[in-house]
Design a protein around this nucleic acid. Structure first.
Length: 333
DNA sequence: CGTGTTTGACCCGCGC
DNA sequence: GCGCGGGTCAAACACG
């Protein structure tokens, strides 16, 4: 199809049915295009063998690339599982506690909890994976109203100084008023309750508690959505707020659960690395912002270009395409 | 004096 | 129905 119009397209067609690439259709269409361009039959016959050979080669390369892509996907899944394994062991051990009450409350607390619980279960035992949708379906049948009313919840991890005894203060750019503090049963560290005080009608609440495993990690749980713009956007000179909300890296890739309106950021990197990252990016990035998308693309490109075999295969594929293009042009002239 | 924090009391849902 | 535990309220307090 694409071959009838142009050879300029250097797409590798990794997922475009590689076997069809060598079906009779492209050759016939290539031949047809030659005829359409008024080429002599002798030129067509001279190029036929080279084209078929080139198509064979490209087809083989496409297969190789497809296999490499499969391997990459497997590696990605392995890496993701390792990440989830780490997550399940490190910051939120209380989510893995199996007391029925905890489990119930976790199930009630909509999407983020669903994600983390799912992560934990998949990390602990894949055979025991209880899918997120199953939980939600279960909830929807049990408490359909709560499902809709329940506020949006997200959980963010911040790293604070180990020597920081100033309390459960998380500078995320918003203005919070503390309205309570409680020592919970599963964590000796007190849990602080905050309400957003930037706008009087803002329903957002925040809970901050130190991680039971790592006292230097603050776990902030946000409930609800702000009905006002981020103060940092209105006050661009507020460098402190910008610095504090800069995501050092994604703890949970949003691609793992795109439908979930959650944001979990890893603030657990060392202060030095956070500063370095912040200096490199020099900007606050949101998940859906073009800058962050570009950052992800750069990261992916960097990972791919570090793989010499992938680079070689990619170069071969592109050179094959260029060769095809040159042959096409030679045929036209 | 205004604003924010602290902290004990109270409320409410859940499990037994 | 009772006890437990998380979440919230509100008076007292601290601070600039």
């Amino acid at each position: 199809m694409e071959y009838s119009s142009s050879f300029v397209d250097t797409s590798l067609d990794l997922n475009a049915k590689p076997l069809q690439l060598f079906s009779e259709t492209p050759i016939q269409q290539v031949q047809g295009s030659f005829i359409d361009f008024g080429m002599r039959t002798s030129v067509k016959e001279e190029n036929n063998g080279a084209l078929i050979e080139e198509l064979n080669r490209v087809n083989t390369e496409n297969k190789k690339l497809t296999e490499m892509l499969t391997v990459m996907c497997e590696n990605y899944n392995t890496l993701r599982n390792n990440l989830m394994d780490y997550m399940s062991k490190n910051p939120e051990p209380n989510l893995e506690t199996t007391t029925t009450k905890k489990r119930k409350s976790v199930e009630r607390s909509s999407t983020t909890s669903c994600m983390i619980k799912n992560n934990a279960s998949s990390a602990k035992n894949n055979d025991n994976s209880e899918s997120c949708s199953t939980d939600e379906d279960h909830n929807s049948t049990k408490k359909p109203k709560e499902e809709h009313v329940k506020a949006k919840i997200s959980r963010v991890y911040f790293r604070s100084e180990a020597s920081d005894t100033t309390g459960l203060i998380v500078k995320d750019g918003y203005q919070w008023r503390k309205y309570g503090q409680k020592v919970t049963r599963d964590n000796p560290s007190p849990r602080a309750y905050f309400k957003c005080s930037y706008a009087p009608t803002c329903p957002v609440k925040k809970k901050v508690q130190r991680s039971i495993d790592d006292q230097s990690i603050l776990v902030a749980t946000y409930e609800g959505e702000h009905n006002h713009p981020h103060p940092a956007k209105l006050e661009p000179n507020d460098s402190s707020s910008n610095r504090c909300v800069t995501p050092a890296s994604l703890r949970c890739s949003t691609s793992l659960n795109l439908s979930a309106p959650t944001l979990t950021l890893d603030m657990t990197k060392s202060k030095k690395s956070i500063t370095e990252d912040a200096n490199k990016k020099a900007t606050t990035k949101k998940i859906d912002s073009p800058e962050f998308q570009q950052f992800l693309v750069d990261q992916m490109a960097s990972s791919l270009t570090k793989d010499p075999s992938f680079k070689a295969a990619l170069a071969a594929a592109i050179s094959g395409k260029i060769l095809q293009q040159n042959q096409q042009r030679n045929g036209e002239h």
